[in-house]
């Protein structure tokens, strides 16, 4: 996931702004990390460069 695309991302549940927490990043993008909603208690994982923004009940 590229940092530039943060500005149009939103929490799928409450549409709040997401805050990026990076665990691993290469020269192009964030590989692992998480996206924490600033409005509701949800946090979404980023694995293998793909943010998992599925609602919590659909997340495996």
């Amino acid at each position: 996931m590229k940092r530039e695309l943060m500005d149009i991302l939103a929490c799928p549940m409450c549409k709040g702004t997401l805050q990026l927490d990076v665990t691993e990043e290469d020269e192009n993008e964030v590989i692992t990390g998480s996206l924490k909603c600033t409005q509701c208690p949800e946090t979404y994982p980023i694995n293998d460069g793909i943010p998992n923004l599925l609602p919590p009940d659909l997340r495996d």
Partner: peptide, 30 residues
Amino acid sequence: ARESARRDGYENVEFRLGEIENIPVADNSV
């Protein structure tokens, strides 16, 4: 999709795991 994007060097495409009934995109953004 992500593998293809990387292999062919697409810089302007990004993929998100999400549900189309709960789109993970900000209001008025596309």
